[in-house]
Write a protein that binds this DNA or RNA. Sequence first.
DNA 1: CGTTACCTTGATATCGTTCAAGTACCGTGG
DNA 2: CCACGGTACTTGAACGATATCAAGGTAACG
Lengths: 264, 264
Amino acid sequence: MIHIHEHLKNPRLDSPLKRKLGTFVDLTDDELAMLTGLERGRLEIPARSDILRQGDPYEKVYMVKTGWAIRYKSLSDGRRQIVNFVLPGDFIGFNAAVFMVSDFSVTSTTAMTLSSFEPEIFLDIMAKFPKVCLAISWCHAQEDSVLREHLLSVGRRSAYERTAHLLVELWRRLTLLGLAEDEHFQLPITQEMLADALGLSTAHVNRMLQELRLDGLIALTTIPATKISISDSKGLEAAAGFTEGYLHFTEIPQRMADALDART
Amino acid sequence: MIHIHEHLKNPRLDSPLKRKLGTFVDLTDDELAMLTGLERGRLEIPARSDILRQGDPYEKVYMVKTGWAIRYKSLSDGRRQIVNFVLPGDFIGFNAAVFMVSDFSVTSTTAMTLSSFEPEIFLDIMAKFPKVCLAISWCHAQEDSVLREHLLSVGRRSAYERTAHLLVELWRRLTLLGLAEDEHFQLPITQEMLADALGLSTAHVNRMLQELRLDGLIALTTIPATKISISDSKGLEAAAGFTEGYLHFTEIPQRMADALDART
DNA sequence: CGTTACCTTGATATCGTTCAAGTACCGTGG
DNA sequence: CCACGGTACTTGAACGATATCAAGGTAACG
C-alpha cells in the first residue's frame, strides 16, 4: 500500500492522471513525458452540462483534471440510475475506442476542466508503453470493482446501510485525491442525485441522512453547498458494512512487475 | 453488425474465445494460431463448485469453453448479489493481472470446461497482437456495459420489468452463442439465483415468473431443469423496456480498424 | 422410501414510495 | 436594497410493492 501523503507530495506526479497511474506502477521519465503530452489538450466545462449523452455517437476520450461529474443511465420514462461518480483522475468515454455509441450519459455537477485525446493514442501506448497500458487496465478494473460494489449495495443493502456505504466510499476516494480534509468534505451533488445513485427516492435519502445524523455518525451542512463531516468514521463504516478491499488501492502484483521488467 | 449464423458456422472460429473475439475484429491466421495455443490448458469443473472465492488470492485467468457460472459478492451475514452470469466465451479472473485478491466469487452452476492461462501472457499479446488486445478490451467494455444495465435494473426497474429484462438478456446472449433454439432455452439456475441477481426474494421471483406466464409472455418447465420458452418476444421486450444497444454486438469502429492497419 | 432441494402459494409485516405542504436559501430584476 | 421565483431540502401521512414467515407440494437422490 502506498502512503498517500507521500504520493500527493511527489512533485513528479503533477496531475491527477499521473498520480493515479503512479499509484500502481513506478513511472519513468519517458513515461511521465508521454503523459504530459497526452494532457496538453484542455477543455473547460461549466457546471451541470452534458459531456456525453446516452445513445449519442462519440469519439473522444476525456480525463478529469478538476471537478465532479455523474455517469448515469436513463429509462424512457425518465427514471434514472447513476452508475458512478466521476472524480479527478477518472477517464470518461474510454469506450470510444471500442464502441461507436455511448450507453450512458455523463453530466458535470461542478465546473470541470478536462483533457481530451483521440482513442487511437492508446494503440501507441499499448505498443510503446506497456507499463502505462497496464496501469490504465488497473484503473478500469478498479472502476469495475466499484461498480460491482454499487450493485451489491443497491441489490442487497438496506437504505440506511447503502447511504452510509456511499458516503464512506466517496470520503475514501476523495481522501486519496487530497480533496477531503480529515473527516469532512464538500459533496457537490443534490440529494436527488444521491437518490438516483442509491436507487431510492429523494424523500427517503433525506430521512436516511437525518437518521445518520441523529445516530451521531455524520454532520451535515446543506447550504450553501452540501458539506459532510464524518463524526464517527468507525461507526459509519460499521453501519455501512464497509470493507475497503474492493477499492483496490494497491500496487500491481510483483509477478506482473517482474514480467514487465523481463520484457525490456 | 455481423450475421450470427454465418459467424457460428465459420470453421476457422472453432472455440467460444475465437468466436467472441472474431465478432469484433477479423482475425489473421497468426492470431488464430496464437489463440489456439492459449486455449491448450484444459480444466474440468463439476457443477456447483467454486472457481474463485471473494477475498482469496488468485493467479490464473480462465476462459469458459462450456457451462454456466455465476459471479457474485456476499455480505458477512450471507446476503448475496449476483453481478453477472458467466457463459461460454467469457473470461474469469482477468483481474489477476492487476489485483492480488478477488473482490467477488465465481461458482459453476453446471459442469464446465475451462482453459486457463497465466496473466503474464497478456503482456505478450499486448506487444505482439494489438488487434487481439483491442478485442479483449472490447470484451471487457461489453461486460461493463452489461453490469451498468444490471445496476439500472436493480436500482430503477420494478420487479416485473427487471425479471423480464434479465430473461431477454440471457436469451439474446445465448442466441448469439448458438445455445438457444429459436425461442426456448435451458436456464440452469435456481430461482434463488435469479432472486440474488435481481435483488429480490425467491418468493417474489416466483410470483413474477407466474405473472409473466399468465401474461402469455413466457412458458416454464421447472422440472427436471428449468427451461424457458419465450412465447411472445415482442411483448416480453416491451414489458422489460429492453433495448439491445447496451449489449454492443457490433464491430470495432472503422477508425480504430484503420489505425490498427496503419500501424503494421 | 425417506430425505433433500427446490418450487409454490397464502397471510402478514415492513420498508420505502408517493403525494402534499411547507421551509430556506439563492440569484435576479426592479 | 428588496421582492420574487426557483431550486433544493424537509417532514408528515397514506399507500403500495416487496419481504418475511409459514406450510405444503413434488421431483430427484441415495
